[in-house]
């Protein structure tokens, strides 16, 4: 199915169960050793409901959400994220998005990542698609 990059085209949703394994493995893969991302007792002692995603992971997942859709030829130029509620272990993070603009191979995508508490991350991703061609999927 060809990817449509006209304005308003919607990205396929990406939903992730935020297992402790996902929270902890991404924290360590981004070299973020802050205890609130891997130590539930300490996270709760500091007033959190549980361990939660670190920001480097949020940025990584936003990038993945867009490149999953845009494909390997897309070049990410910019990711702007406004951070909202925490994404706790045990919650589900659902990304949705739509093309905001597409001009001369430069595409801006609006992205929203939601958890049960509300918006975890909202923002835009700017990318270049070199050939200005729709990407083939599969």
């Amino acid at each position: 199915m060809p990817v449509r990059i006209e304005a308003d085209a919607e990205l396929p949703e990406l939903a992730l169960d935020l297992t402790p394994t996902l929270v902890v493995s991404t924290a360590l893969a981004t070299r973020d050793f802050t205890p609130v991302h891997h130590d539930p007792a300490l996270a709760r002692a500091q007033g959190s409901a549980d361990i939660f995603l670190n920001i480097l992971t949020t940025m990584g997942l936003v990038e993945r959400f867009v490149t999953d859709w845009a494909g390997p030829r897309a070049v990410i130029e910019r990711i702007d994220v406004r951070l909202g509620v925490p994404a706790y272990a045990g919650d589900r993070l659902s990304f949705s998005g739509a093309v905001a603009s597409s001009e001369d191979g430069r595409v801006t995508v609006r992205v929203r990542g939601r958890v049960s508490l509300g918006d975890h991350a909202t923002g835009t991703v700017t990318l270049r698609v070199p050939d200005d061609l729709p990407e083939e999927d599969g």
Binding site: S25, A29, T30, M59, L61, E63
Partner: peptide, 30 residues
């Protein structure tokens, strides 16, 4: 990083570059 993120994009290791969102990862303190 890609495994933890579930990111299957082959372009990075195929072309010898890092995912751009990893920028900060390289200089994180231990």
């Amino acid at each position: 990083w890609q495994q933890a993120m579930g990111d299957t994009n082959p372009v990075y290791l195929a072309t010898g570059v890092a995912p751009p969102a990893m920028a900060q990862v390289w200089t994180m303190p231990g």
